[in-house]
């Protein structure tokens, strides 16, 4: 310990005021903080830009088309006279989403319960990333799969005859898109619900096991209800994804606006209307062009509502268990 002498040679008391001061004003630190904050603010600018870009043309749209017509069921913008009943494309979206969730929710939740309550740690570590690969497959690929495999090889052979108008010979079908989207969102539901159920404290499970409950009972009556808000959040998020999906619907469900929930007809959803119309030769500023933004506004509001619900639910379960 020879250092004592040379280190404390300058008497700390005399040197101290200077040594406690900041050697520089540290402008760099403040500049960095400002830059980082700017990065965060960019996300708010993005949202604002989305809203602004939707609002302008939407207002222009409603200067020509009355609100009551907009909320009609007849959508034929290319006809003469054109008709802009948005409910036809909303119904198309709901049609696809509804049938999709009918398959995706039970499969997704079944997978989630299996992952969280039945699978060993090793199996879970393999299965979960594999499922997540499914969620990462481009929707163009899934749409192609839906129209070249799900439709001709699964739906048409299995469909019961003429039921609901029959499935044979149809090149496009809402149900094909529904099943394709289900393939995409099952991993979302499974993965997020598994996260929610895994966050349920072990004590709660052990308490139930100590009472002699079986694994199935613990899973369904203890863990599932305890993780309910996280599970609902995952489902809401999945619905939001299904509502916003474009390419699968464009490829597999065709582009025939139809106010129906019949799964074996061709439909047009909000997203596919936007995609098909905006890529066609529509003059900027025409009413058909503006209709893209009006439909976009409806789509944005619908998904926004669902996202907000989902975010709130997730926060609630995080507050309780984390």
């Amino acid at each position: 310990m020879t250092r004592a002498g040379d280190k404390q040679a300058p008497e700390p008391a005399g040197d101290l005021p200077r040594r406690l001061r900041a050697p520089s004003p540290r402008y760099g630190e403040k500049a960095i903080q400002g830059l980082l904050a700017l990065c965060g603010i960019l996300s708010v600018i993005t949202t604002t830009a989305i809203v602004v870009s939707l609002i302008g043309p939407t207002i222009g749209f409603f200067e020509v088309v009355s609100v009551s017509e907009f909320f009609g069921t007849e959508w034929s913008p290319q006809f003469e006279p054109p008709s802009f009943g948005v409910l036809a494309t909303v119904a198309g979206t709901l049609n696809v989403t509804l049938w999709c969730m009918l398959f995706a929710i039970p499969i997704g939740l079944g997978a989630a319960i299996y992952l969280s309550e039945y699978a060993t740690a090793r199996v879970r570590k393999t299965l979960k990333p594999t499922l997540e690969v499914l969620a990462g497959i481009p929707t163009v690929a899934i749409g192609f799969f839906a129209v070249t495999f799900i439709l001709p090889e699964i739906i048409q052979p299995l469909w019961p005859g003429d039921f609901l108008g029959g499935a044979t010979g149809k090149p496009f079908m809402a149900l094909a898109a529904s099943l394709g989207i289900a393939l995409m969102i099952v991993p979302i539901i499974a993965s997020l619900s598994d996260d929610a159920m895994s966050a349920v404290p072990r004590g709660l499970r052990e308490g139930a096991y100590a009472l002699g409950a079986t694994r199935a009972k613990v899973a369904t009556r203890v863990v599932f209800p305890a993780a309910l808000s996280g599970i609902v959040a995952s489902i809401v998020l999945a619905i939001s994804r299904a509502v916003g999906e474009t390419m699968i619907i464009v490829l597999a469900a065709g582009s025939t606006p139809d106010f129906t929930l019949n799964p074996v007809v061709s439909i047009q959803a909000m997203t596919s209307y936007i995609a098909v119309t905006a890529t066609g030769d529509i003059p900027t500023g025409s009413i058909a062009y503006k209709s893209v933004f009006a439909v976009g506004s409806v789509l944005f509001l619908m998904t926004l509502a669902m996202n907000v619900i989902s975010i709130r639910l997730v926060r609630r379960y995080r507050e309780v268990y984390e």
């Binding site: 700390p12 008391a13 101290l16 005021p17 040594r19 406690l20 001061r21 900041a22 050697p23």
Partner: peptide
Amino acid sequence: LYHGEDLYGPEVDPVQARKL
């Protein structure tokens, strides 16, 4: 007070203080 200096004085930089 730290060696007679107010450790929470307006001039004191916490980063410097932590070095000492």
